[in-house]
Amino acid sequence: MRQLLNTLYIQTQGTYLHLDTDNIRVEVERTKKAMLPLHHIEGVVVFGNVLLSPFLIHRLAREHKPVTWLSEHGRFMARTETPMSGNVLLRTAQHACAGNAARTLAIARLIAAGKLQNQKVTLLRAAREAEADDAALLRQAARDINVQIACLPLTETVDEVRGTEGTAARLYWEVFPLMLRQSRDFFWLSERHRRPARDPINALLNFVYTVLANDCASACQAVGLDPQIGFLHALRPGRSSLALDLMEELRPVIADRAILTLINRQQLTPRDFVLHEGGTVSITEEGRKTILAHLAERRREEVMHPLTARKTPLGLLSHIQARLLAQHLRGDRPHYPPYLHR
């Protein structure tokens, strides 16, 4: 039996969630909008002005179901730390590995290689559907990224791995708009940067990456790993470095392809964005609903996992990769196998 983990996303401002026996009662302006069985929910993500009763927060925490608070526009604010599951020996092994420069470098190389390979596959797939001139540029970018993949085994420090990954990222983002087939005059990308978003593509990437990072943090906690102790991303207070590590190889597969699909199918249009004074861009509430609905559908799509050789929902990839990493940290696997999309 296989269960696809469900996350409840609430973004209607003024919504109130509270516990009603074994259900989550959803109210807007004191009017009941839904009753959701608690056992169907594996986590709650709320945007902006959304209230949760203390009893609901306590119940979710007892059942290892995290609550994540984001700003109205999708910026991460806070996340409940539910009681840790898993074996304390796993976390001890994780901390020991993070203190071992050679092992940290080996894991960082493999995570970066997985990300770059999936970026290359994304570019080549788009090239098959693009016009001749765009296809040539996409294939050239894929070849250039392949060169960077070949450089990864030669890196001697994690900083060098980050530098190689950064070079590949610049190649990837330079041609990213060429994978769009609709509204290119509006959906432009100056360069990849975080916040504040100054173009529609960055606004989309920031939002979808926040959702994906939350999924990866949940996967780490479910396995018993410490989400803050990573290998590729530098350790910083308040940063879920390991969740960001797991997210790297899934970005092109889940997040980037979701954005390309929504734009190319015209499910997202210029009407779903707000241009603010100062040159910043945000996504409307309806636009965020469209994105979240599409991501929910994507999670149910099945792909053949190259290691398990079984069809797996995209929504469970982060959990599988977290378990594979845990096996490596325990010494059950000689190397961490990144997810490679076909």
Rank of each mutant, 00 (worst) to 15 (best):
Q3W: 05
L4V: 12
L8A: 06
Q11A: 14
Q13K: 11
G14E: 15
L17Q: 02
H18W: 03
T21I: 05
V26S: 00
E27H: 05
K32L: 00
L38T: 07
L38Q: 05
V44T: 06
V46L: 09
G48C: 06
L56T: 04
H58G: 05
E63S: 09
H64I: 07
S71R: 00
E72G: 02
H73K: 07
H73G: 01
R79Y: 04
R79L: 02
S85N: 04
L89P: 00
L90G: 09
L90N: 09
T92C: 03
Q94K: 12
H95Y: 14
C97K: 15
A102F: 05
L110Y: 07
A112Y: 09
L116H: 02
V121F: 12
R128Y: 13
E131F: 03
Q140S: 07
A141S: 14
I149P: 02
L152R: 05
P153Q: 15
T155G: 02
T155D: 03
E160R: 05
R162L: 15
A168M: 06
R181N: 00
S183E: 14
F186P: 09
R192W: 04
A197I: 15
A197W: 15
A197Y: 11
T210E: 01
V211P: 01
V211K: 02
L212S: 08
A217I: 03
G224A: 15
I229S: 11
F231V: 11
L232I: 07
P237R: 04
P237M: 08
G238Q: 11
L242W: 06
D245E: 12
M247F: 11
M247C: 12
E249Y: 13
L260C: 02
T261H: 04
L268E: 09
P270K: 13
F273N: 07
L292I: 15
R298Q: 14
R300I: 05
E301W: 13
P306D: 09
T308F: 10
T308L: 12
K311G: 04
L314P: 05
G315E: 00
L317K: 14
I320N: 02
Q321N: 10
Q321E: 11
Q327H: 13
G331Q: 06
R333L: 15
R333N: 12
Y339V: 11
